[in-house]
Design a protein around this nucleic acid. Structure first.
Lengths: 348, 348
DNA sequence: ATCGTTGACTTTATCGATCAACACGGAGGT
DNA sequence: ACCTCCGTGTTGATCGATAAAGTCAACGAT
């Protein structure tokens, strides 16, 4: 079979063999309507016979200027990305819409400081656009993207550029209002990041050192809970563990909060564990609120602010692949979903 | 800032500007030891100033012949891939090792029949190698990979080519022996695939129509359970749902099996649901066995055959990225993990 | 004084495909 | 009979970078 000499078959060799021009071969693959059906069929058949594997991707990309690839930048190890339901749902939407544009998704990890290899990976990736889906836009090394020179779509608020996100201040207000009505006055907020694994840190209660999305949510929260005591804690990037650790910190403190607001459901589930370990029943002894509404939230009965994660991914993909899409900054609707994890503040 | 005219900055323009050759610029980025440190620094600085974003990926790929990308081919919708713990664990290992080779992972979906777009996506992808991680190697359209002309690494047994997998016959024997000792004589086997979502089909009990890995496991099972009645059922690709549906089918039949062997833990968890719905306690009224040992298996107490999934991904990545790695066909160790989901066959 | 080496760049020739512009033969209008 | 248009293909330039081979000065060894 495959009667060639062993060297790679290229359009040129195939063209010589068939006595047609290279362009015609190219058209046979990429623009079927530019040549007669018979000729196309013949070319395709001969190509298979000669062992030609179709147009070389790099050549095509170079000349055409398109890679048909959308980068997905995750601010952590990729293994974690897959373990996080939020990210998974986002990726599902993203890949669906990217696929619709005839492109695929390339997984990239945001380089941390000093990680030369990862930075180069990002640098070298043949992509047309990049979608960032990190909990925070100021994740260490996330700036490296800017230097890349491709279209960037963020999944979080920022002043400029393309993004698709939710109104975080409003999200915070929704939670604040809910907790206020229930009478909560001592509240802990758990945010992702800030410290290496295993450590816990208490942050300024105004959210000034937090990433933007967290700061805005905290702002909304405070608006509706003007006379509440709010503590902000962080315990690293790995959500479940961080949630558990941070919650442990605040629950073992002097004036234990009556409600914990976690910046994601994944974090909230960690809080859940910590509560359980201390014999506290969520919704009765301790109110827990999350954000996102991942499937597990419904399963355990977590009160949360729902956002259309998969749609977010879909839209991010569209913005990334279609530079002409008019609306470049999209705010998606949110909704407070009250479940059993919140209840009246215990009388103390 | 960025003092150029607006046209893209390329190595050529940068070279002219600096009065050095293009190659020198190239070397400044790719082979730091081939030019003096000062010149390199100067070039890099000037590059930033000029708004040059580093070597163009397509150009590099074309000339060098390497893309530094490893394709990951999943036999289903990508959203499912992320939902499946097995795949997630595999991807974690894969991306870790691929990254070590300075490459990234490109997500691809195996084209089903008639899916032109997806087939072209696979065709056009700029990849150096591809790792397939489908439950079966005969997944519809999986053959399209062969035509791609790149190195293929399978995560399942096949006669030729590169692969990393487990000894499926042995895995089957482990389960067979275990069930035999417990006295089970009516056994249902649930395999993935075969029918569209929502349908259930009963297959030849010798596994002859099953995908290879399933056939081998069934063979091992039969070896150790020579006088048992074995039924083989399938209910599509989506594991949890398929498991539940297939289990429903066999559990509602006349001579209900005393044990169900599912070809993956994800399937087994579906079986679990079906059992529960019928008031059957796993391990007492119905024995359930899975394969893989995903985290949830330990959580619910599922007896399963453990395989090192993440290592599998890691090794697949290595085979994919390193053509000189000597061992091209790797069999990983497995181990029966007995938990509470199996017990003596009920007396009837 | 000659030669072989090394370091630091440069020159030249592609890599494989696509695009823009042009050529050519026949159909259709005037 | 002449001109235009259309369906089909062709030619030549070009995308941006890298490999391989070449140049040239400086230097130590013989």
């Amino acid at each position: 079979m495959g009667g060639d000499t062993g060297t790679a078959v290229t359009m040129k060799t195939l063209a010589e063999r068939l006595g047609v021009s290279v362009t015609t071969i190219s058209n046979a693959y990429s623009k079927p309507d530019r040549l007669s059906t018979e000729l196309r069929e013949q070319i395709l058949a001969e190509a298979k016979l000669a062992g030609y594997c179709g147009p070389n991707a790099a050549g095509r990309a170079l000349r055409s200027g398109r890679n048909d690839v959308c980068g997905f930048l995750f601010g952590g190890e990729l293994a974690e990305a897959f373990a996080d339901p939020y990210t998974v749902a986002f990726l599902a939407g993203l890949s669906e819409s990217v696929e619709r544009f005839g492109a695929s998704v390339l997984l990239l990890r945001a380089p941390h400081e000093g990680e030369e290899t990862e930075a180069q990976l990002l640098q070298r990736a043949a992509i047309d656009a990049i979608v960032t889906c990190s909990p925070t836009s100021d994740h260490p090394g996330m700036q490296a993207v800017a230097a890349r020179g491709v279209r960037v779509v963020g999944a979080q608020n920022s002043d400029s550029g393309d993004w698709v996100t939710i109104n975080d201040t409003k999200a915070g207000r929704l939670v604040g209002k809910h907790l206020d009505r229930l009478g909560h006055r001592r509240i802990a907020v758990i945010v992702p990041g800030h410290v290496p694994e295993g450590e816990v840190v208490e942050l300024p209660a105004d959210g000034s050192t937090c990433s933007r999305f967290a700061a805005e949510r905290i702002r909304g929260l405070r608006e509706k809970l003007p006379d509440a005591t709010i503590t902000v804690v962080s315990a690293g990037w790995k959500p479940k563990q961080a949630g558990r650790l941070a919650a442990a910190h605040v629950l073992d403190a002097q004036d234990r909060p009556t409600a914990v607001v976690a910046m994601s459901d994944a974090l909230a589930l960690g809080v859940w564990d910590a509560a359980r370990e201390r014999g506290l029943t969520p919704g009765r002894d301790l109110s827990i609120v999350g954000f996102d509404d991942i499937p597990d939230a419904g399963f355990v009965g977590l009160t949360t602010v729902r956002q259309p994660i998969t749609d977010k991914g879909r839209l991010a993909g569209r913005l990334a692949m279609d530079p002409d899409y008019p609306q470049r900054q999209i705010t998606l609707p949110i909704q407070l979903v009250v479940r059993s994890s919140t209840g009246p503040a215990p009388k103390n």
